[in-house]
Design a protein around this nucleic acid. Structure first.
Lengths: 228, 228
DNA sequence: CGATTGCTTGACCCCCATCAATCCTCGTGG
DNA sequence: CCACGAGGATTGATGGGGGTCAAGCAATCG
């Protein structure tokens, strides 16, 4: 069993505010596991009863719309925490999380986190800051979804992927998203996403090799994203 | 100067977790003011340096999209708190707030709130819960914006208004939203919103008398909102 | 009582959802 | 090693939703 107090991953999230004693306690009760690509970490309506700390891999967090299509709302990767919200308001998850590639995660039971929330003000304040930040980003997404065309949203999303994820050696973005996934991020039909991707490729703004995506012209994408 | 410890409004928001002493301290440094319909409480990019506690009235909180259209993201009313997020992450506001009708608000300076956040864990935990809840709602809005048609979104919005706001004596919803405001909530052109409103009226789902909106058939709206 | 702002309706056309057909890719088993 | 099947990727055709421009109407205000 790896030790939390020696794990560098926590430096990237709110767990960094925990004291050494708290970390040692958490080491004693956490569980580590691997999640294979395509596996469900948790589903809508499920009680998670804890939080996940992502040590490696990426997962997509989505919600089913009334119309029956999945909308991807978050992409979670190494260093991120998953499940805090349902824990805090003590409700079943409103979201579903599926591994996009093989993952390495730790699971920390609810009661431990609650205890730290109540006893360590640094921890709750840091979480508060994280959530305030998430809300701000959510505002941006709402505005984009409400006002931008599908083409603009695709450009925005590609720039987001470029900024958030590492690159492979050849320069392609290190996330294995299917065309359908991409469509479900921007909220459109798969065919529409595909058509626009090939249009972008024709215009040398991106390149596509199978599932690999290369961002070639950031400026052009940014112009597009902002509506010329 | 009215006294916070005697103000019932705080029972509706996180300020209810403050102790009597803390409230007395806040009474000493808060300012009360009235805001007339159409006035700007704060604009995008402004540092708010505190939070507003809304004693009466309604304001719309919006964000300008790259395309130059305003998107209304929140409607804030009596009992709500406004501005916590920018305060918590110590940044300029990303949103603009405009009074929809005459308002009565109190303004509490930043430092006082910060002090309470750091010293009163009940306060920060309650705020944390509020924000977790806001994030959940934001998820729903994102999914709706991304997946629903304008007609569905209008139905959803009407139901939201019906649920959130008081009614006038004649049964109409007690908010003075212009057609443009409604369009800016659902993220569409004013003309589209108007067209759909009159369609709904023709089908006896709502009634319109000038700016007043009457919800007649909740079930039909709900069916519409969820896609039949 | 003009004049400005908001509301309403019509016409037009492009974006995009949908259906359908084909091609490609990859894992599996013979 | 190859054939085959299944799921993903791609392209075409089509129709409707909704954005935009424009003109007329109502209401609000100085």
């Amino acid at each position: 069993m790896s030790k939390c107090e020696q794990c560098i991953i926590r430096e990237f999230n709110s767990l960094k505010t925990l004291t050494k004693d708290e970390l040692i306690r958490i080491t004693g009760c956490k569980t580590s596991k691997t999640v294979k690509k395509g596996e469900v970490l948790f589903d809508e309506g499920e009680y998670i009863n804890g939080v996940f700390c992502i040590k490696d891999g990426v997962c997509k967090v989505s919600k089913m719309s009334d119309n029956g299509r999945d909308q991807i709302i978050h992409l979670i990767q190494k260093g991120d925490i998953l499940g805090e919200r349902s824990l805090i308001n003590n409700e079943a998850s409103n979201l579903k999380a599926i591994a996009v590639n093989d993952m390495e995660v730790c699971f920390i039971p609810k009661d431990e986190i609650i205890r730290d929330l109540e006893n360590n003000p640094n921890f709750s304040l840091d979480l508060l800051r994280k959530m305030a930040n998430s809300l701000k980003k959510a505002d941006d997404v709402i505005v984009d979804m409400a006002q931008k065309t599908v083409k603009q949203r695709l450009a925005t999303t590609l720039l987001f992927l470029e900024a958030k994820f590492e690159k492979n050696d050849n320069g392609s973005i290190k996330v294995n998203l299917s065309r359908e996934d991409i469509a479900n991020i921007i909220g459109t039909a798969t065919e529409s996403a595909i058509r626009l991707l090939s249009e972008f490729k024709k215009k040398k703004m991106i390149d596509l090799k199978g599932k690999e995506v290369f961002i070639l012209d950031v400026k052009a994408l940014k112009d597009l994203s902002e509506g010329f």
